[in-house]
Design a protein around this nucleic acid. Structure first.
Lengths: 366, 366
DNA sequence: CACCTCGTTCAAAGCGCTTTGGACATTATT
DNA sequence: AATAATGTCCAAAGCGCTTTGAACGAGGTG
């Protein structure tokens, strides 16, 4: 098993053919006799021949590898949603014969990481994770002239590059409207860090919905921080202990939402009856397995859903298209999140609501 | 910026030197005049020269890349603990100039993935994630004669390869003893999938602790499944609805523990008072940020802790040592988890306990 | 002065692929 | 029958590095 690795040259010798022919036979070129091709393939399999990746990429100039640069946040952690995304992207790479290169980096020097990856010709393209509202990486990558696709997008010139994003603004607007329809007037926001474009847009949606119904903003019930459990806990604890706690809250991820639950439990309060909670959950597979939705069971959290895994798949597909295809125009996809009703939302308790409650039957928003 | 990439040859031409000298100057060989070396380095920086990774690895035979093969579990998801591990490993790779290659695969054909990675010389070594109790990957990799380090270990011949593992047996034994000391006699187990070695050992620890105190096993309060929220929820729900619910429970990960909390809340029961919970949390960064422990705040869950990130770091270090160093003997590290007391454990309610309760003061186990 | 040793540099030979530009039979076309 | 058009195959030139073996002065020894 540990016998010397077999090279193209050896294989050609064994077969009594030239390297050219063997190479072409294996790579499916038409100008080789089908009989010889069969012989070659058989021998390659028998001798367990695998072309050297570095030799091939040196010769072709293609690395057949895609780079993912993930930045550690304030808490030096990788966004857990990332695993789902990567799983989706991985499927696609496997299908097309690409490798996935992962670089973990602190927030400084991200650009150097990209530059390094690219100028050493380690990757044919990169995917950009977690774009900020104004993100220097994008003009930088454009200038480098390398294929890339953004998961999310930036404020500036989004038409000039490919991206896939969820309509975060709309999702939060809708969720907020849903709460208002339930009679809530005092609605808190537990958002992610608002330099991130997605969080910024979520806030916009929240603000727009309130404004449209003539509800004033109250910054004392608006929070913004890393999307982790303790943040949700602290924010909820602070709101619930205030003289005028909200009756509902919009939470940016299921992680802080779990913290909200903890704060409620501590006070012997209950979701839906004491505090309505809507969470943007991105279908975190390890908390909310997709099959639950399929099987028809009612999920616990009322949530805006959008599959991270699907996003990973689609981003990978776009990127490969861009790498392999002729220079096509940038593509964009804006996905709508689905509002799924769970057990954490309910009508505003009459005592607290300033207007008559219009209870709507639970239903599944498109 | 998008000007043609500069090669070693060009750089040598510009400098009026041979490729040999330039290469050696950049790679720190001693036989080059320090004055020339300085000139070379300056020029390289000015012209933004980066050696081609594939050319270098073709010439040296080293890929300077390490492969991680992660297998999607039953729920087609990546274990979320993985992100922390990878973050740790990534730090080390960055420090030593290695890349990280990630391959996502279904459970079939894992071996082919390794074989492919290795025989195409894409990686210099691999790390094995989530070893099963008897895992065919290990003899397979040994036969291939490639450097690898296992995160966890297998039952068979663990002395023959390098690994880093947590003493899962001991951790669960200790946690179980702690509960027994609190007066609990009926202790449930919500374990991971027991074909996984770590889950198997955890169960052993649990069983050993009970046996040592003369408590009979009751398989109706022992559960084993993927470590996700719904599993914890279902297991807890089932136990709490039974005629004779446990007064304490050992949970294999913080994810199912969240499900346990949900089951409790649903029944208006409370942790510690109605059900003691100890969780093995692996310091999931997005739920239990390390700084909480450092800052002295009492964490919510009573937990057995062991840092995934540290494990990732150490595994990477061992692997690089193995790749670069002379053939040294396999190394093993067995880490002890730390038992940290939080808010989810308390004495067994007298009515339920069969023996007088011996309350111990809360303390931090080493 | 011849000889040796250093310190420094270089030409050239790979590493294992892909790809260009023929070569050489066959077969089809005139 | 001569020519053109295939259908198959090959030798050789790269791709951009690393590394071997040798060259060449300068300084140190006998």
């Amino acid at each position: 098993m540990a016998r010397e690795t077999i090279t193209l040259r050896r294989l050609a010798e064994v077969l009594g053919l030239s390297q050219t022919t063997v190479s072409r036979a294996l790579n499916g070129f038409p100008e080789v006799n089908e009989a010889t091709r069969a012989r070659v393939i058989e021998a390659a399999q028998r001798l367990n021949y695998r072309p050297s990746a570095s030799a091939a990429s040196l010769a072709t100039g293609k690395a057949r590898t895609i780079g993912h640069v993930v930045t550690l946040g304030d808490h030096m952690m990788i966004n857990p949603h990332f695993t789902d995304f990567v799983a989706g992207a991985g499927e696609v790479y496997a299908r097309f014969g690409y490798e996935m290169l992962l670089r973990i980096t602190g927030s400084e020097g991200e650009q150097d990481v990209y530059r390094d990856l690219i100028s050493r010709r380690r990757v044919d393209g990169v995917v950009v994770h977690g774009p900020k509202t104004r993100d220097p990486r994008i003009p930088f990558l454009r200038k480098l002239g390398i294929p890339f696709v953004v998961h999310g997008r930036c404020e500036e010139d989004p038409a000039s590059y490919s991206w896939i994003d969820v309509n975060n603004r709309r999702a939060f607007m809708r969720a907020c409207n849903f709460l208002i329809d339930l009679g809530h007037r005092r609605i808190g926001l537990i958002n992610g860090i608002e330099t991130m474009n997605f969080a910024d847009r979520r806030r916009q949606g929240y603000e727009a919905a309130l404004a449209a119904r003539g509800i004033d903003l109250d910054t004392s019930i608006m929070f913004s921080a890393d999307m982790i459990e303790p943040h949700g806990y602290r924010a909820a604890a602070q709101m619930l202990s205030s003289r005028k706690p909200p009756t509902a809250v919009l939470v940016s991820s299921i992680l802080p939402a779990i913290g909200v639950m903890r704060a409620l439990a501590e006070r012997e309060l209950r979701p839906a009856t004491d505090l309505s909670i809507i969470v943007f959950d991105d279908c975190l597979s390890f908390l909310q397995p997709g099959n639950e939705a399929v099987s028809g069971a009612i999920p616990f959290f009322t949530a805006m859903r959008s599959s991270m895994r699907l996003a990973g798949r689609r981003v990978a597909e776009l990127l490969i298209e861009q790498i392999e295809g002729q220079h096509s125009a940038p593509k964009h996809e804006l996905w709508e999140a689905e509002l799924v009703i769970g057990h954490t939302t309910g009508p505003c308790a009459p005592a607290e609501s300033q207007v008559p409650v219009r209870v709507k039957p639970f239903r599944r928003y498109s």
